[in-house]
């Protein structure tokens, strides 16, 4: 029976369904990442504010994200929201909220330290050309910051994609759930299905994340030169 195991992957639309499940996860990660970048830039700017209480609140925010496991945050939002806000958040929406919460904190910290590292002359040469503070910021400083942060951002995206695997625990039908369904369905026909299905899911995640982490490494080397 064992040598038929791998066939479960090629039966019917199984493989396609796995890919669809993977797409659900990817969607979550990409949307959260996009939101995190935008919000993170503002947070980064905020963190360099001169007002002490603003800085303190930001620091607490970052510490929460640093200490709390993402799964716990997912639970808080998914189970907690229903009770307190009365709305029934789907697993997907909860995931996007939590991932954005997490991603914004990380991006904010990255942006903050990148902003600090940009030499003053960059600002000053902009002002000397007659540009306003806002113009200098968004047209000169931010683009440079983003370029410098690309490797770290790709790294964060890779981690987000991996973390989307957690949403199976709050009921989202993504690739792991689809895999489980396939295994249950072929319980009698292919007892060894679990090995092949989870093995394939393992490889699928690798196939998605590896290009990004490679790209991040290449970018980092380029930026260092």
């Amino acid at each position: 029976m064992q040598n038929l195991g791998i066939q479960v992957l090629f039966q019917g639309t199984n493989f396609l369904r796995l890919l669809e499940g993977l797409w659900v996860s990817l969607r979550l990660a990409v949307v959260s990442m996009a939101l995190s970048i935008v919000l993170g830039i503002f947070l980064g700017m905020l963190m360099n504010s001169k007002r002490k209480w603003v800085k303190a609140v930001c620091r607490i925010y970052l510490e929460i994200v640093r200490i709390m496991p993402q799964l716990v945050l997912l639970f808080l939002v998914y189970f907690g929201a229903a009770k307190h806000l009365g709305i029934n958040l789907s697993g997907e929406v909860s995931a996007v909220l939590v991932f954005t919460f997490w991603g914004t904190a990380e991006m904010g910290d990255l942006v903050r330290s990148a902003l600090i590292s940009i030499p003053k002359h960059q600002y000053e040469s902009g002002y000397a050309l007659g540009m306003t503070e806002k113009q200098v910021f968004f047209r000169i400083i931010i683009p440079q910051t983003i370029r410098r942060l690309l490797p770290s951002m790709m790294n964060l995206l890779t981690r987000m994609i991996k973390t989307t695997s957690l949403v199976v625990l709050i009921g989202v039908v993504e690739v792991v759930k689809v895999g489980k369904q396939m295994i249950d369905a072929s319980r009698f026909t292919t007892p060894s299905a679990a090995f092949w299905v989870y093995g394939m899911i393992f490889l699928l995640y690798f196939a998605v994340c590896f290009p990004f982490s490679r790209a991040a490494a290449v970018l980092e080397r380029k930026l260092r030169d």
Partner: peptide, 9 residues
């Protein structure tokens, strides 16, 4: 490049 959850499963 793979999540712990998948490795555990």
């Amino acid at each position: 490049n793979t999540p712990l959850l998948v490795q555990l499963f």
